[in-house]
Simulated scan of single mutants.
Amino acid sequence: MVFSTRAGGVSVSPHDSFNLGDHVGDDPAAVAANRTRLAGVLGLDPADVVWMEQIHSNTVTVVEAAQDGPVAATDALVTTQRGLALAVLVADCVPVLLADHVNGVVAAAHAGRMGARNGIVAKTVETMIGLGAAPANIQVLLGPAASGRHYEVPAGMAADVEKHLPGSRTRTAAGTWGIDVRAGLVRQLLGLGVTNIEADPRCTIEDTDFYSYRREGTTGRQAGLVWLTGH
């Protein structure tokens, strides 16, 4: 399980420099070079990294082989295939990496406000269990994302997300209503019997080591990757 930052790539402003998103207006050649560099650092074949066409849905897709292009219209990937790396792109949304190494099932999920509200992570866990994973064996890592301190939303939106993802509504540093998606996801995962959870506390809105859509508007995407080693 790894997360990238925005440093170490070839993209130029406003996508500087390690942008891995191919849908944000960056030079496709730069994105391809960055993705190749990422795979090389991790000891992976770039062809074995599976990307998603993320649409803020709660759709989960099981993949069994390398793909020719991103998996269409999905926000979570699950696999039992060793050596196949699953990638999630974010710039404030929560990248969620899940792995049951005992039973050989891994997953990557894109948990933005809407996806998290609509159960993308719960559906991912359900799909993993269907492939043989056990909740007690699933390790979860929640990556850098917008924190409740800075993720300000209208009161009605905060209440709506809280209704569907309890534990997510909070107050920002400014005292306004906000959402802490990671806090809500931790509570949800615990309710599903998944207790081995780690959350990176870094906030993409305030930490300039990361891309942030809220802070910058036009910007790049960092990634989280998970895979089962060996073939």
Rank of each mutant, 00 (worst) to 15 (best):
R6D: 01
G8R: 12
V12Q: 15
S13H: 14
P14Y: 12
H15S: 03
L20P: 01
H23G: 04
P28D: 06
L38I: 05
V41C: 10
D48N: 12
W51N: 07
Q54Y: 09
I55P: 02
T59N: 10
V60F: 10
A65F: 05
V71T: 07
A73L: 11
D75F: 01
L77T: 04
L77P: 02
T79F: 07
T80K: 11
T80Y: 12
G83N: 10
A85M: 06
L89C: 11
V90T: 15
D92V: 13
V94S: 00
P95I: 14
L97A: 02
V106D: 03
H110C: 07
A111I: 11
G115F: 06
N118W: 13
N118Q: 13
I120V: 15
T124G: 00
G130F: 10
A133P: 05
A133T: 00
P135Y: 06
N137H: 14
I138N: 01
P144K: 01
G148A: 08
Y151W: 06
V153S: 03
P154W: 13
P154S: 10
G156R: 12
A159D: 08
K163I: 01
K163S: 14
P166S: 09
T176L: 12
G184Q: 00
Q188F: 07
G193M: 06
C203Y: 02
D207R: 00
T208I: 08
G224M: 00
H231V: 08
